[in-house]
Structures are given as structure tokens and as C-alpha cells.
Design a protein around this nucleic acid. Structure first.
Lengths: 129, 129
DNA sequence: CTAGAACCTCACGTCGGCGTGAGGTGCAAA
DNA sequence: TTTGCACCTCACGCCGACGTGAGGTTCTAG
């Protein structure tokens, strides 16, 4: 399977896949002529990488986690890393939730001055909380 | 109130505060001698900015949201922006949750091969899900 | 009055995850 | 055989939120 198809299936750019290889995250075999040759499991691997990127992990952290996917052998250090990253994500979930709730609060306020008319309504200006 | 105290109270660096001013997020008055002069409400403002930064909003987005805090007047456009950012955050919450759950899954696997011994245990190598 | 914090303004450095050419090669179809 | 698309390797560009000096001023305590 060539790089273009992997890109499409995994929903990433070709450039991204080359970058992943550069970082040692997904190392493809090479066919005659030097073209990258991916397997089906590589597609899953890429999807997993995307998942972790989306969670804000830097490539080095991912690099330390991936070997576990291959071997399913966990050293103590690896389990600790996994847990550490999980906790980080959990913390970010807290931050994001706080931010969302705060925005919801503001949107609630805003609704009072916006919703019923298409034009502008003259408001009372006062200090917020 | 001078910049150092604001930094400490809001839990950010002095540099960050100057950067916020550069971006138009928090514009402090100036005392004789050119030193920045902040008010108590500026501290709250900075905390709010931090909240939004922590949620991944870029400074331009924050810049568009802040006027609402001052005036409590919401144009339609502003309400839309607020809602848009809220939805973004919601989407990220989904991503992060997925990632966390996946990691929990892996940690569960890892526990089987790590927990009871300090040394390494010879495992069976097979393909993961 | 004087030391030494704390402040000021440039202005360049950083880091990560790619985007984006430039210039050349491989491969399948007509 | 020739088109033409997909692929290849450099290698520089980018953007945002500051960090980090450099070199000078202001404020406060003794």
C-alpha cells in the first residue's frame, strides 16, 4: 500500500506521514524504487497517533508509548508514562470544562440582550461578576 | 498596582502581561515614569484570559470576546463568536475523552503484565485490537 | 545618597507539526 | 513511447505564546 492511500484512509496529509517517519513513529518498508510500502496495521497505527496528537501529546511522548502497541509488553516505566499522560489529559479535561462552563455563562447573559431582535437593542451597561 | 504584583496574583509571568498588552488584551494605564498601573479588575481579566488560553483559544479570538466582558453588550456577531468557541471546546472535549479512554484501555492491558512483579515477565506477543 | 530591586523597551530565539515549493524519479495506461 | 500522476528528497517558511538577554530608568529602603 502506498503513501497516498494511507493518507486518505487515515485522514492525514502525505506530508504528515513522512513527518511521522522522520520522527520514528511509523517506519514504512521500501519497495524497489524507494517508494514507501505500508501495511494495513500501519493505517491503524496512524489513526492512533492522530488520537494522541489530538490530545496534545508531543511526538516524543507518543514515541515512548508506541512500542507498547507493538509488543504489548509493558515495563514499569512504560506503564508509568501511560498513566502520566492519562493524568495530563484528565487535567486538560478539567481546564476545558471550566472554560466551556464559563462561556456558557456568558452566552446566557448575552442571550438577554440579543435573542429577540435582529437589530440592536439599547442595553443597560453595568459591571459584570 | 504594578506589573509584578499582577503577575503573582494572576499566576502568570511579567513577560506574559506585557505580551497581553501588545495584543491589546489588557491595556494598563501608565503612572509618571512610564510604569504600568493595573487595577484589581485587571487581575480578574488576566485570569479570564488564562482560562481561554488554557482552552486553546488564540489571542485574536480572545480579543473578540473580551469587549463583551467590559460592556455586557452583545452584538449578534459576538454571540455567534461565543457560541462558536464554545462548540470548538466541546469538540476538543470529545477528542480528549476518546484519547483518555483509549489510554485507560491500554493501561488495563499493561497492568496484566506489570503489576505483580518488579522485574520483567516474559509475555505472549500478539496483535492488539 | 546610594545600592539594588523592580521596572522599562527593543529585539532575537524557541519549539512543534506540519505547508509548500523546487527539482528529480517511478509506474501505469494509451 | 509518451504523457501524466504519484512518489521521492532536501530544505526553508510559518505561527503563536512567550523566554531570554541587553542596556537603560525608576522606586524604595537604609
Amino acid at each position: 500500500m502506498r503513501i497516498g492511500e494511507v493518507a486518505e484512509r487515515a485522514g492525514v496529509s502525505v506530508r504528515a506521514l513522512r513527518y511521522y517517519e522522520e520522527q520514528g513513529l511509523v517506519v514504512a518498508a521500501r519497495g524497489a524504487g524507494g517508494q514507501r510500502d505500508y501495511s494495513d496495521s500501519d493505517v491503524e497505527r496512524v489513526k492512533f497517533i492522530q488520537l494522541l496528537y489530538a490530545a496534545g501529546l508531543p511526538s516524543k511522548a507518543i514515541l515512548h508509548i508506541l512500542p507498547f502497541l507493538d509488543t504489548l509488553v509493558a515495563t514499569l516505566e512504560m506503564t508509568q508514562r501511560l498513566t502520566k499522560e492519562r493524568d495530563r489529559i484528565q487535567a486538560r479535561l478539567h481546564d476545558l470544562t471550566r472554560a466551556r462552563d464559563r462561556l456558557d455563562e456568558l452566552i446566557g447573559f448575552a442571550a438577554q440582550y440579543t435573542e429577540s431582535s435582529t437589530a440592536q437593542c439599547p442595553p443597560r451597561v453595568h459591571a459584570p461578576a
